[in-house]
Design a protein around this nucleic acid. Structure first.
Lengths: 124, 124
DNA sequence: TGCACACATGAACAACTGTTCATATGTTAG
DNA sequence: CTAACATATGAACAGTTGTTCATGTGTGCA
């Protein structure tokens, strides 16, 4: 029996079992760049510190000092994470005197992690 | 002037600027364990490979070989990530002969990343 | 103008993550 | 039973990430 595999193999180290399924699914797939952006978004939610910060800000506008007090973390750690959140357009800030106040960029952010909460609460 | 700071400082290296806000927000916060679980969930979504796999499975049930062909990745890499997804109860599988077919654990999973897609599409 | 506070940021370091490589397990056909 | 395929898994390795530490920037007050 000839090495049938060698004729078909391209990027996958196995036969193409269900060519029709693969083609059908391929047509439905969003383009890769969108998937990468989606992953980037969730990666930002995927950290307990950042989630906690977002949770705080969903209740009230807060300054860096307040957040670090509440979460019992250093100002530096919070500041670094706020920077990440800001770069991702998940929070915005305004300066008032010495303090800088942060809040959620839009109500949409709240919906995203509330969707996740629903999933978790149903699961356990 | 006495080092006022030393009297107040506990875990945060600054004064407690808005004690009332902090207390109000603290009452609204979900307990920490829940936040950690939420972060764990999003961490799993926060990878382009895993998001791509979930996207595939939202269209059709697929075997490992099909997925690795479609995503142009090695079978091993896909298998490792499917394991992560399964442990998180995001996918389930069934064996049929030599092949193992995977599908989403429930429709809920689909809703989670579709919520993210909405956010991304609105943003740009 | 100088000091103290609030915040930002760069470097460094440990911990974690995702892929590859090699190999093991499970299944079917002959 | 054996060979070949489909999948799973452990070790290793590079790349990434989050915190800490030290220090810089911006603001208000005396």
């Amino acid at each position: 029996m000839p090495r049938f595999k060698d004729d078909f193999l391209e990027k996958c180290d196995c036969y193409l079992l269900h060519e029709d399924t693969v083609e059908q699914v391929r047509k439905q797939m969003p383009d890769q760049e969108l998937l990468i952006r989606l992953a980037e978004l969730y990666k930002i939610f995927g950290d307990a510190t950042r989630i906690s910060i977002l949770m705080c800000l969903s209740t009230a506008e807060m300054c860096v000092c307040d957040i670090s007090t509440l979460l019992k973390m250093t100002q530096s750690a919070i500041s670094h994470q706020l920077r990440v959140l800001k770069q991702a357009n998940l929070v915005k800030n305004r300066r008032q005197g010495k303090a800088v106040f942060y809040c959620l960029a839009d109500e949409h952010v709240k919906q995203i992690f509330e969707q996740g909460l629903v999933h978790i609460k149903e699961e356990y």
